Simulated scan of single mutants.
Amino acid sequence: MSPPILQRHTMVDDAQGIFTGTLFVSLALILLGQAGLLTGGTAGAAFLLHYATGVSFGKLFFLLNLPFYWFSWKYMGREFTIKTFLAIALLSALTEWTPQVFKVAAMHPAYAAVLGGLLLGSGCLFLARHRASLGGATIVTLYLQQYKGFRAGQVQLVIDCTVVVLALFVIPAERVAYSVLAAVLMGVFLWINHKPGRYAVT
């Protein structure tokens, strides 16, 4: 029997995948933010600055990613960079706008960590399947893996640990612990579900 013919995602496929993934991530970040938690990577840095300065997460997240677009264009390619820019811009807008129509009156931080971590993992999986990311830290980890031989998971772990250590100076240790739980759940979800070669469609 002949092997199946691979089909690339269409623009409509990419549009719905990037929108859905970004929507999931925005909900996760809103839940984490309302519970006073954070996550790793560039989003975690934006959370730290948000808690320290009061400037909105969406604005900070968009600004923090600006230096990485040239790097992404040069090393990761035009398609990846354009999709990543669109995902970041959409996520920044959603995190600014969604709290006006979606609020949770009371939520235990453990629940926010579990639901937020799984939503983050789901959203990032959607984006990865459509060759997009949420910027900064992800671009660096993918570059180091592709061109320097470092494993992306290890680099991401170093970045996330750095964010967690800095968080201890900004938010209570209990909240940092719940944030670590969210990050672990996200990582386990991606480890189980994001395996090369599992899906034929590219």
Score class of each variant (00 low, 15 high):
2 S>G: 13
3 P>N: 11
6 L>D: 08
6 L>M: 14
6 L>G: 12
9 H>P: 06
10 T>L: 12
10 T>Y: 05
10 T>D: 05
11 M>D: 15
11 M>F: 13
12 V>L: 15
13 D>M: 07
18 I>C: 04
18 I>L: 14
19 F>Q: 04
20 T>I: 15
22 T>F: 06
23 L>W: 03
26 S>R: 03
27 L>G: 08
28 A>L: 04
28 A>D: 03
31 L>V: 00
34 Q>K: 10
35 A>V: 00
38 L>G: 01
42 T>P: 10
42 T>I: 12
43 A>Q: 03
44 G>R: 06
44 G>H: 04
45 A>E: 02
45 A>K: 01
49 L>M: 08
50 H>L: 07
52 A>G: 09
53 T>E: 13
53 T>P: 08
54 G>S: 09
55 V>R: 11
56 S>Q: 14
57 F>G: 01
59 K>F: 11
60 L>W: 05
64 L>W: 06
69 Y>F: 13
69 Y>C: 06
71 F>Q: 07
74 K>F: 13
78 R>P: 10
78 R>K: 10
79 E>G: 08
80 F>P: 03
81 T>M: 15
81 T>E: 07
82 I>E: 09
89 A>L: 15
92 S>H: 05
92 S>Q: 10
95 T>C: 11
97 W>Y: 14
98 T>K: 04
99 P>R: 13
99 P>Y: 10
101 V>Y: 14
102 F>S: 06
104 V>Q: 05
104 V>C: 03
105 A>F: 14
109 P>G: 00
110 A>W: 01
114 V>E: 04
115 L>M: 13
116 G>Q: 01
120 L>S: 01
125 L>M: 11
125 L>A: 12
126 F>T: 02
127 L>E: 05
129 R>E: 05
130 H>P: 05
131 R>D: 12
132 A>M: 02
134 L>G: 00
134 L>S: 03
135 G>Y: 01
137 A>V: 08
137 A>F: 09
139 I>R: 02
141 T>Q: 00
142 L>V: 11
142 L>Q: 12
144 L>Y: 10
145 Q>F: 02
147 Y>S: 13
153 G>L: 14
155 V>L: 11
155 V>I: 14
155 V>Q: 09
156 Q>F: 08
158 V>G: 06
159 I>L: 09
160 D>F: 01
163 V>C: 02
163 V>Y: 04
167 A>L: 01
168 L>H: 04
168 L>T: 12
173 A>R: 06
175 R>E: 07
177 A>Y: 02
179 S>C: 04
180 V>D: 02
181 L>N: 00
184 V>I: 15
184 V>D: 08
185 L>V: 03
187 G>Q: 08
187 G>Y: 10
188 V>N: 08
189 F>N: 06
192 I>A: 09
192 I>P: 03
195 K>P: 07
197 G>C: 10
197 G>T: 14
200 A>K: 14
